[in-house]
């Protein structure tokens, strides 16, 4: 079976600063994969390399077998990204944002219309569809980011801190929705600082620290002996810090 994501020796530098230091890992189709690490560890840089926002310095990345540089069109059709920051034309309406993105992915008008109506309903955004993005509350903006990632119905979703700053109700709604999507077969890569969220949703977890993979295993392996993911996470990152010193 072709992996959903294959990262081989990925390196990314900004000038002399090393952001990602030769990491490798594989995500199988249908996995719910937690990608953890402290701020500045290299999570978002790795995501940017997968999605084409950043240039890869060394190594390679394949999405469903398609190289993200050589076969970028196919690779990008397979990925939907909900970024950490609201990278959107704040003067556009919600419907236009979704419609333009659908168009960029080559979806025909009728197909876009149907898909957008479905997503607006799914994310409870129908009554806000004509509003400019800047007029929305933080929670609504976060929902638009998620809906945008799913317009072209990709098999692989990358969600970079999708629940940051949202209220408890929305967080629970999103968890249910993500679990449902995963059950339907979507592969999901999730980054989050809420470790109980990762513990609850993900079946495999990688911890990146200072640009290197410090640990990668099934979530259950991190929860041995009644420990919580948070304890293991702190142990691993602390150990890495000590080893680094």
């Amino acid at each position: 079976m072709v992996p959903a994501l294959e990262i081989e020796n990925l390196g990314k530098t900004y000038g002399s600063a090393v952001a990602v230091n030769g990491i490798s890992f594989v995500i199988k189709p249908g996995e719910f994969f937690g990608f953890l690490g402290p701020n500045g560890a290299g999570k978002t840089t790795t995501i940017h390399c997968i999605t084409g926002i950043a240039r890869i310095t060394s190594g390679s990345i394949r999405v469903y077998g398609h190289d993200v540089v050589k076969d970028y069109r196919e690779a990008r059709r397979h990925v939907g990204l909900a970024p950490q920051e609201f990278n959107v034309d704040i003067f556009s309406s919600v419907r236009d944002i979704l419609d333009y993105v659908g168009g960029f992915y080559g979806m025909r008008k009728a197909e876009r219309k149907e898909r957008i109506e479905h997503l607006l309903e799914q994310f409870d955004l129908t009554e806000h569809a004509k509003k400019e993005f800047r007029m929305l509350s933080g929670g609504l903006k976060r929902r638009v980011m998620l809906a945008r990632a799913m317009v072209h119905n990709p098999p692989f979703l990358i969600l970079d801190e999708p629940t940051a700053g949202v209220d408890v109700e929305l967080r629970h709604m999103l968890w249910d929705y993500l679990r449902e999507l995963n059950k339907e077969g979507k592969t999901i890569l999730l980054t989050s600082h809420y470790l109980e969220e990762v513990e609850l949703l993900c079946n495999r977890v990688a911890i990146i620290h200072k640009g290197s993979i410090a640990a990668i295993d099934d979530t259950s392996a991190f929860l041995k002996d009644g420990k919580r993911l948070e304890h293991m996470y702190l142990e691993i990152t602390k150990k890495t810090i000590t080893a680094g010193i």
Binding site: R73, E85, N87, V88, D89, F104
Partner: peptide, 18 residues
Amino acid sequence: YFQRFARHIEEVLVAPLA
């Protein structure tokens, strides 16, 4: 410039556009 400033150039970069 506005796309770069507001970072929604990323919408285009992640899409299958040459």
